[in-house]
Simulated scan of single mutants.
Amino acid sequence: MILDGPTVATLTARLSEVDRRRAARYPGGRGGRQPVHTCYVPANQVGPRTPVQWGEQALRAFDEHGFDLGPDLAERVRAKLRTEPVEDLRIDFEDGYGAPDTEDEDAERAAGHLTRWHADGIAPFASGLRIKSFDTPALTRRGIRTLDIFLSALGEPPPGFVITFPKVTSAEQVSVFADLLEVVEQRAGWPLTFEIQVETTQAIVDADGMLAIPRLIAAGGPRVVGLHFGTYDYTAACGLGAGQQHLAHHACDFARHVMQVSAAGTGVRLSDGSSNVLPVGDTAAVLRAWQVHYGLVRRSLEHGFFQGWDLHPAQLVTRYAAVYGYYRESLAGDARRLATYAARADGGILDEPATAQALSASLLRAVDCGAATAEEVTQATGLHLDDLRAYHLR
Rank of each mutant, 00 (worst) to 15 (best):
D208R: 14
A218E: 14
Q202P: 02
Y26M: 08
L139V: 03
R21D: 01
P158M: 03
G281Q: 04
L296V: 11
R269A: 15
L240Q: 14
L364D: 00
D253H: 02
A322L: 03
G267K: 14
W290T: 07
E56W: 07
R82A: 01
S362D: 13
H118L: 05
F194L: 07
E103M: 10
V323C: 08
A110L: 06
R298V: 08
T136P: 13
V174N: 03
T318V: 12
G370E: 08
Q202L: 08
Q53N: 13
F150N: 14
D179Y: 08
G70N: 13
H228T: 04
P222Y: 00
E375C: 01
A123N: 05
H37W: 09
A178Q: 02
A356S: 14
G221K: 08
L287Y: 06
L15S: 12
T7K: 10
L89I: 13
H249C: 06
P157E: 00
E329Y: 05
A390G: 12
E156F: 00
Q291G: 02
A123E: 01
H118W: 03
L227T: 09
A289H: 13
T381Y: 02
V367R: 04
R269P: 08
F305Q: 07
G304P: 14
F305W: 15
T83P: 15
T235A: 00
